[in-house]
Simulated scan of single mutants.
Amino acid sequence: MKDTGQLLRIEDLHVDFLTDRGWTNVVEGVSLDVGPGEIVGLVGESGSGKSVTSLSVLRLLPPAYARTPAGHVWYRDRDLIGMPARELRDIRGNEISMIFQEPMTSLNPAFTIGDQIAEVYRRHKGGTRRAAFARAAEMLDLVGIPDAGSRVRDYPHEFSGGMRQRAMIAMALACEPRLLIADEPATALDVTVQAQLVALLARLRDETGCGILFITHDLGLVVELADRVVVMYAGEVVETAAALDLYNAPKHPYTAGLLSAMPQLGVRGKELPVIPGRPPEPWRLPEGCRFGPRCGYTSEECVAAPPALRVAGPGRSSRCCRIEQLHLVGSP
């Protein structure tokens, strides 16, 4: 692949899962990229394929039950999909790090926080245990853990939920990765801790220059943090845009539905809008637009054939065949 200057470039990614019905496609034709110092938000409802896409980047899906029949995941000029496992292990946690959804289940309860961060550092950078433990304390201090030199000897159960999430970020950043994948890092955190987490990731991007793929279902977090947003629905990308452009003027009815369902401060006495229906099951997809059965703007053209992802303006795309006709409302 020609070097485009991007850290991460996913091209036409397809992922299948082995189910009772045989191999079933769950992610189809996903393409996105993340540049140095850029934060890209990946949003959508649960089951839209966000986490599957992120786990496929580092080939963390179980090979017995998941496969990638087509597509490429380029990290700089190297294709991670076809890379030998030994080379990929040298990249995981080193050049590309990942923050997983549940810090309590991702951290080993039998080892201290410092031991777990130090293990990652020694695996990729070498050095003595003392030096690695000092690095662990340094990273905990970087992510805002008070009295990091002492707390580095604590076990995960001695940290609050927000502190465990910070410890996961410290572990992910210990080797100074060029790319950070954050898979719903704010899940189960209260709004105050969420705001702190957003500020922390933005500060780390500014200080280290790393690119971040930020995966979430919370559009409120994305607009505060991301430079660009990629919206997924039923395993496909349905819209891409700069964050503020997407919020001000969405180009796909699904994105508009997500924005309208966001809770608004100061609004009382009105029911919160919802998107009717449910996402389709992967083995029972509509003939035409996958969002068609839930869309209030469906026409004959929408059900005739699956729509392609088309240009919707400078730096924008939408998988809607009526983008020239619709004038969708953004978030207040």
Rank of each mutant, 00 (worst) to 15 (best):
Q264W: 04
V73D: 00
R284K: 11
G235Y: 03
E102D: 14
V329Q: 09
D3Q: 10
P185A: 04
V267D: 07
V229W: 02
A226R: 10
G277F: 03
R228D: 09
M262H: 07
A132C: 07
G35L: 05
L61E: 01
E11M: 00
V34Q: 01
G220W: 01
A234P: 13
D183F: 02
L285K: 12
A136E: 04
L142D: 08
G296D: 06
A186S: 15
G313R: 08
A305S: 14
D154G: 08
P84C: 05
Y297D: 10
P307F: 03
G220V: 12
V198G: 14
S56W: 11
V267F: 13
R86A: 09
T112P: 11
L8C: 01
A167G: 05
L80F: 08
I212G: 07
L80E: 02
Y65W: 07
A172H: 11
D20V: 14
P307G: 12
R322I: 11
C302D: 00
E38F: 15
D183L: 11
R310E: 13
A172Y: 09
N25T: 15
L140T: 03
M171H: 01
L42C: 03
L258F: 01
V311Q: 11
A242R: 05
T19W: 13
T216C: 05
R153A: 15
Q101D: 04
A118R: 02
V15D: 03
A304Q: 12
A261G: 01
R59K: 04
D16H: 13
T240V: 08
R21K: 11
W283S: 00
Q194N: 02
I113V: 08
A256H: 03
A261V: 12
V191G: 13
H327E: 15
Q325I: 12
E119P: 15
P62T: 08
P63N: 13
N94D: 09
